[in-house]
């Protein structure tokens, strides 16, 4: 009896919390699939959480917002920025991690220490002088301004360093005896062996770039170059504002992330908890 009550309580609490956590996502999704007026007339009833009864109306808000704004362009920009950052960040951070892990060069200790020290600089507070540098480089309002700063991250270099150190040196030594260059060893042996680290750094980099908002807002002035996140607040401030169309663009921006989380969830937790124990 007592057991049944606790079990019931647990399930009741679980469901209540589940509703609290998921209702905004569902409301966003269904509100993007009904006419504007229906969002507000449905609000007093449970129909607020159902899409339009008329299936042909589901895509209407999407059609309308695609007609009003160049959504394809924003989506394309976001995908281009995120993929460039992902590829670049994997390569640049792993190259540096490889150097720290396997090559003995002068000043290595100093540079590694400096990099660990850089970890404590809160990037968000230096955006102003970062902007000044970007302006002096003459890359304001270009994709480079958005992509370049995200290509190297002390934490990811650290993760690759730890990962490469753990790989046995036998294969590398054998390859070296056969005359392989350091780069060849990195490219042909180390990288293919570090798929977990690549998946973690790649996923985190993709999400970081996709969600980036303040920095692109600062360095991009031409709306043609906007990523989705900047376009969203822009659209939300452009009269006339239609709730169903805003919900449509929010949904469009969220779908790629849902896919990423579904396919790479494992690596995200592994990455964070392992890097955590590593830093600890």
């Amino acid at each position: 009896m007592n057991n049944k009550t606790t079990s019931f309580l647990y399930h009741f609490l679980s469901i209540l919390l589940a509703i609290l956590f998921i209702f905004p996502l569902i409301w966003m999704l269904v509100s993007s699939m009904k006419p504007e007026a229906a969002i507000y007339s449905d609000m007093g009833s449970l129909e607020a959480f159902l899409p339009s009864m008329n299936v042909s109306e589901w895509l209407m808000p999407y059609r309308e917002i695609f007609n009003r704004f160049n959504i394809i362009r924003y989506l394309g920009n976001s995908i281009f920025y995120a993929l460039s950052v992902t590829a670049g960040s994997i390569i640049i951070n792993s190259l540096a991690g490889y150097a720290f892990a396997t090559i003995d060069f002068k000043g290595k200790k100093l540079l590694f220490g400096l990099m660990i020290a850089l970890l404590v600089i809160p990037g968000e507070t230096i955006i102003i002088t970062k902007f000044v540098i970007t302006e002096r480089l003459g890359i304001l309002n270009t994709p480079l301004a958005v992509i370049l700063p995200l290509l190297a991250t002390p934490l990811y270099i650290y993760m690759f360093t730890i990962f490469f150190r753990a790989i046995s040196t036998e294969l590398q030594e054998a390859a070296m005896l056969e005359g392989a260059t350091k780069f060849k060893i990195y490219w042909k042996i180390m990288l293919p062996m570090s798929k977990p680290a690549i998946a973690t750094v790649g996923t985190l980099s993709f999400i970081m770039s996709w969600n980036d908002y303040i920095w692109p807002l600062m360095v991009l002035t031409d709306s043609e170059t906007y990523p989705l996140q900047v376009a969203i607040t822009n659209i939300n401030n452009t009269q006339p504002v239609y709730t169903n169309q805003v919900m449509a663009i929010l949904t469009i921006s969220t779908i790629p992330l849902i896919l990423i989380y579904v396919f790479f969830q494992k690596h995200l937790v592994q990455g964070l908890s392992s890097s955590g124990t590593g830093v600890k």
Binding site: A96, Y98, L111, L118, I133, T134, P149, L151
Partner: peptide
């Protein structure tokens, strides 16, 4: 091997 990372971190973090 470090150069690309050094350039990026230098330009957008250290400097």
């Amino acid at each position: 091997f470090l150069l690309p990372a050094l350039i990026v971190l230098g330009l957008f973090l250290f400097i």
